[in-house]
């Protein structure tokens, strides 16, 4: 009698909240957060659905939420400074993006386009910041995760530079923290 798309939020026993909580516990950016904090963030998260061709975020536009793909596939497009956008990759369920957007005002570096029907969990910066104001231990832990991530990234850049034997001028203003 009811189509499955109507029922996706009200499946047997499970509710949006527990699904969100499970997702957030696995998300790298929230590593180390206490369960109480994660519960609040799961509570504040929402879910969104997209149809084929819809854009989840647009390069150059303000990035104001973090998303986790729960179902479907997306294409990642990147347009160089003067030129057409090209697909640089695809991703499927389990991929998260926009974590850094929770922390500050940034513009998106890429466009994400849905291929087919897509569902994702959404946490907006505003809600995240409201929670962060109230839990002082949240941000230091997020910072810790971000710093580790950057360190890994720097290591990769350095090793790829070693391999390519680039001259220092080619480093293009890369700042090592």
């Amino acid at each position: 009698m009811n189509s499955s798309t109507d029922r996706q939020d009200a499946s047997e026993g499970a509710c949006g909240f527990t699904t969100h909580l499970d997702i957030l516990r696995e998300m790298p950016i929230f590593t180390g957060q206490s369960l109480d904090v994660l519960k609040v963030l799961a509570y504040l998260s929402g879910s969104e659905t997209y149809r084929d061709g819809d854009r989840l975020c647009v390069q150059g536009e303000m990035f104001d939420c973090c998303r986790f793909l729960t179902m479907g596939r997306v294409e990642i497009l990147r347009a160089p400074e003067h030129g057409q956008a090209a697909v640089v990759g695809t991703a499927g369920g389990g991929w998260a993006f926009g974590g850094l957007a929770l922390l500050t005002h940034v513009k998106s570096l890429y466009t994400i386009r849905a291929k087919g029907d897509v569902e994702c969990l959404v946490l907006s910066r505003e809600k995240f910041q409201k929670a962060a104001e109230r839990f002082p231990q949240m941000l230091p832990r997020v910072l810790h995760v971000v710093v580790e991530h950057m360190f890994t990234w720097e290591a990769k850049v350095l090793s790829s530079l070693e391999r390519n034997a680039a001259t220092p001028e080619d480093v293009h203003g890369l700042t090592l923290f």
């Binding site: 939020d9 009200a10 047997e12 026993g13 509710c15 949006g16 909240f17 969100h20 509570y43």
Partner: peptide
Amino acid sequence: TPGRHKIVGLSRLSE
């Protein structure tokens, strides 16, 4: 309102 309140689920039986 199950569409808005996600903290509890609405089972098919209840519906």
